[in-house]
Nucleic acid binder design. Sequence first.
DNA 1: TTGAAAGCGCTAACAC
DNA 2: GTGTTAGCGCTTTCAA
Lengths: 336, 336
Amino acid sequence: MAATMKDLSRETGLGLATISKYFNGGTVRKKNQALIESAVKKLHYIPNEVARSLKTRQTRVIGVVIPELSNAFITSIISSMEDILRKHDYAVIVCDCRSDPKQEKEAVEFLLHRRVDGLINMATDPSGAHLRAALSAGVPVLLVDRLIDRLRGKVSAVVIDNISASHQAVRKLTELGHSRIGLVLGSPNLYTTSQRLTGYLNALTESGITPSDEYIRYGDYTMEGGYQAVLSLLCLKERPTALFVTNFEMTLGAMLALQHKGIRVPDDLSVIGFDKIELFGEIFSDLTLIRQPQQSIGKETALLMLDMLGNHDGISHRIVTLSTELTEGKSVRALK
Amino acid sequence: MAATMKDLSRETGLGLATISKYFNGGTVRKKNQALIESAVKKLHYIPNEVARSLKTRQTRVIGVVIPELSNAFITSIISSMEDILRKHDYAVIVCDCRSDPKQEKEAVEFLLHRRVDGLINMATDPSGAHLRAALSAGVPVLLVDRLIDRLRGKVSAVVIDNISASHQAVRKLTELGHSRIGLVLGSPNLYTTSQRLTGYLNALTESGITPSDEYIRYGDYTMEGGYQAVLSLLCLKERPTALFVTNFEMTLGAMLALQHKGIRVPDDLSVIGFDKIELFGEIFSDLTLIRQPQQSIGKETALLMLDMLGNHDGISHRIVTLSTELTEGKSVRALK
DNA sequence: TTGAAAGCGCTAACAC
DNA sequence: GTGTTAGCGCTTTCAA
C-alpha cells in the first residue's frame, strides 16, 4: 500500500506536525528536511490530496460544464483555461452535456457531490435552474459566453460584447450600400443569439433600414443549419445582397451552400462570418469575419475563477466583457 | 455549512450506520427510509464524495493525459469516452500537456496526487518514462492510439491497426498503377508514424516497387507540416503521381498546398487522406480516405478501463485493436 | 435491521 | 521548531 505521512513519521522519528509543515512550506530544520526528503524517496511517498481535501474543505477541483466538447471554439477556450488553472494546482473536471438541459443539471449535481471548489458553465439551460443547487451550496459560479439574466449579481461571467460585434459587422455592410442583409443566427433562446440579433437590428435601424424577419434565419449553430439557412435565404424573391453568419460552424455551412449554388463571393454576394479557428486559418483566409479572442476568454475565465476562490470572504461577482475584432478579408464588396 | 450524515443522524434519530446503509443500497426499514429522505430534503444534504473516497480508497476519478485538447480527433474520442465513464459515475480530469513530455510527466504526477483510480494516456513521451510512477503505485494504465513497446504486458491499450490501414491505402494506389507514391507522416518518433510507414513499405514491396526515402516526408501531424511536406514533394524531379497523407490536419494542409499550386485532384495527382471529422463531413466529401472509428475508440477505452477497475484482483492487460475503413471518394484515379 | 466506535490520511490548534 | 491530539465526513466491522 501507498506510504502515508505516518510512515514518514516512523521512518524519520519526527512528529506528524513537522512532516505536514514541511509539505506546506513551514519552517523545518535543515537536518530534518533532509531526513524527510530521503524518507519520501525511500518509501515512494505520494501526498494524498483526498485526505487533505477532506481536512481543508477544498478539493482544488473546478467543474466545467459545457454543451459540447467536439467544438473547436469551446475546446480552445477550455484549453487555455485549463492550462492556467493547472498551473495554480487546480484540476478541471469537464462534463459535456450534449446541449441537453437534463444532462446539464445532472452534471452540476455530479460535480457538487465531488465538492468542486468552483463551477464554470457555458450554459445550455437559459433559465439557470441547473445552477440553483450550486448557488445555495455557496459554490462560486462563473458563466462563460452566455449570460443568464436571472442570475445577475449571483454569478460572475466572461463574455464578449455580442451586440457591438454584430453591430460592427452589419454596419460595415450597410456602409457599403447593402440593405438586404441576411442574418443567420443560432438557436432562438440562447443569449448569444438574441444579443447578436439586437446588434443587427440596431445597425440596420441606425442606417434607416427597416429590418424584416424575412432576412433572419435560425441555423442552430451547426454547419447543417447554416447550410439550410442560406439555401432558404437564397429562395427569397428579393435575395439578400449580403450575409452575416454568426458562428463558425454555420459560416462553414454557408460557404458550402454558396459554393454548391455557384454563387461567387463577394461578386454575387458579400459575406461576413464569425470566429476564427486556428486550424482553418489558411483555408478561409480571405473571409471577412468577426473574431472572438478564445485565448483571452479562457485566460480571463481562469483568472476570474481564481480570484473568486481567493476572496472567500465577500465574493465579488464581476462580469468581464471582452471585445471582438473585425478581420478584413475579401468576402465583402460595395453594392454596385 | 453543508449538512453531513451526522446531521441526518441527529435529525432522524437514527445511527450513522443506518444512514450510510441507506445511501449504499442496504436494507433499511421503510419507515426509516422515509425519515431519511425527508431529512435529506430539509437539510439539503449532499453526500461528500471526498470523505467517501478517503474511506473507500477510490476516488472514482479517471485521469486523462493527452497531447492536445484543440484537436478534433482527440476530442471526439474523449467525448464518447467521458460520456460512458460519467454514466458509470466516474469523473474525468483531462490534462492537456501540449505535446510536451515534461508537462506530460507533471500531469501524471498531478493526477497521482489526486489518487485517480486509473490513467488514460495518449502518450507524448514514447519511452513511457512518465508512467513509471503510476505503474509502481499500482494505478491501472490504459494507452490510447499509441502503444509503448516497453510497457507491453504492464498496460492495456486501444489502438487501430495502423499497418493495415496504411497498407490498404497504398495498396489501393499501387493497384491503380501508381508507383511514385508520396507519403506524409507525423513526427518521426511516434508510434503511429512508424506503423503507418511500415504499412506503406510493405504495400510497395509487395507490388514489386522499391521504396525510396525521397518520397517520404515528416509533417508533424500539423496542417502547416502537411502543407510544407507536399510542397517539397512537388519539387522532386520525378514528381509523385499519388499521395498518402496520414492524418487529418496534414490532409487539410496537403489539399491547400495542391490548390495553391493549381494541381487538380485527381486529374494531376491522386490523394488518399486520413481521418474523417464530423464537422467537415461535407466539405471534403469527395476525398478518398482512411477512416478511424473515433466513437468506438472512445467507447472501447472507457469499457476497457471500467473492466480493469473491476478486476482489482488480477488485472488483465489487454490490447484492443480496432480496424479502419477505406472510404471511397473521388480523389483517386488510375494512372494513365 | 440498527448503533457504537474505530479509522481512512491529513491539517491545525495547542502546548512544549 | 517540534510533538500531541482532535477532528474533517464517511464506511465498516462487531455486537446488540
